[in-house]
């Protein structure tokens, strides 16, 4: 078996097969989406009468608002999920096993339940005073936070398990208060995991439809909901155009996150190397 894997021709064959599967499964749908967004007509194998009209239209009116709503919800929900997830992971790390299992379940279960059910459950749960959030933007935010905190929690937990031994204790012995240890040592060391969690959570929030469609108020239509209603009304090209912008926005935000998240240089080090 290992001989098979190590032979050069087999390696090329495997790489080729992988490339084809990736292209068919992931590339083709994306290509279709992009082609549909610039299609004037699509009656044959390939679209005809290419146009930028759909893409242009998607940057105005209700569709532009939907993009903005998605971006705002995504950023807000990601930040809230990071705070909640890291808090939960830090708080439960030294807890008894049973407590930790309980916290695990609370944070991770939403991933295992259909998002439509989550939406419905939140709708019912927050429909009576004093927790009356029905028909508010806040409920959209809460729903997204509930759906994506699992990723922040799981990533933070993995990061905490990999923290170098003794560094937090060492910071304490050097005179750092617990809050200083958190800000100067623990969180910076969790940064790679938090970045990954933020990217995943944000991407999931940007594309979230199932739960949002149950709870969104009329004034806060998100991009996926708008795409759904456009295609539902038969405006397939307009829906594809908005999807392309949604994709671009998400990638743009993730790219920014990746650039900003590279290891920071502290003040002293910067001064020294500039000198």
């Amino acid at each position: 078996m290992s001989e098979l894997i190590h032979s050069r021709s087999t390696r090329w064959l495997l790489a080729g097969a992988g490339l084809i599967v990736t292209a068919v499964l992931f590339g083709l749908p994306l290509l279709t989406l992009v082609l549909a967004s610039i299609a004037g007509e699509w009656t044959r194998a390939l679209p005809t009468h290419p146009t930028l009209a759909h893409l242009r239209a998607a940057l105005g009116g209700a569709q532009r608002a939907a993009l903005w709503h998605s971006l705002a919800t995504g950023v807000g929900a990601t930040l809230a999920a990071l705070v909640l997830g890291v808090w939960g992971a830090l708080a439960s790390r030294d807890a008894p096993r049973l407590v930790r299992r309980g916290v695990d379940a609370v944070f991770l279960l939403p991933v295992a339940i259909p998002s439509v059910s989550i939406g419905l459950a939140l709708l019912v749960a927050f429909s009576h005073p004093p927790l009356l959030l029905n028909g508010t933007v806040a409920l959209v935010g809460v729903t997204h936070v509930v759906l994506i905190t699992a990723y922040a929690y799981a990533s933070a937990q993995a990061g905490i398990a990999r923290l170098p031994a003794g560094v937090e204790e060492m910071a304490g012995s050097l005179g750092a208060t617990p809050s200083r240890v958190l800000v100067r040592v623990t969180l910076p060391l969790l940064l790679p995991q938090l970045r990954a969690a933020a990217a995943l959570g944000f991407a999931l929030s940007m594309g979230e439809l199932g739960a949002t469609i149950m709870i969104y108020p009329p004034g806060w239509v998100t991009a996926p909901v708008e795409v759904f209603s456009l295609t539902d009304r038969g405006s397939l090209f307009a829906g594809a155009a908005l999807s392309v912008w949604l994709l671009a926005t998400t990638f743009g935000a993730l790219w920014l996150l990746d650039r900003r998240g590279s290891p920071r240089r502290t003040a002293l080090a910067r001064r020294r190397s500039d000198a």
Binding site: P164, A165, G166, V167, E169, M170, A171, G172, S173, L174, G175, A176, T177, P178, V185, P188, L189, L191, P263, T266, L268, A269, R272
Partner: peptide
């Protein structure tokens, strides 16, 4: 608490802060 004791500590695995330069 440890941070109020002001004792210097050196351990076997050094426990240096990996995200900080030597000076920091």
């Amino acid at each position: 608490p440890p941070y109020a004791r002001g004792l210097g500590l050196v351990v076997q695995n050094y426990a240096l802060f990996p995200h900080l330069r030597v000076a920091d």
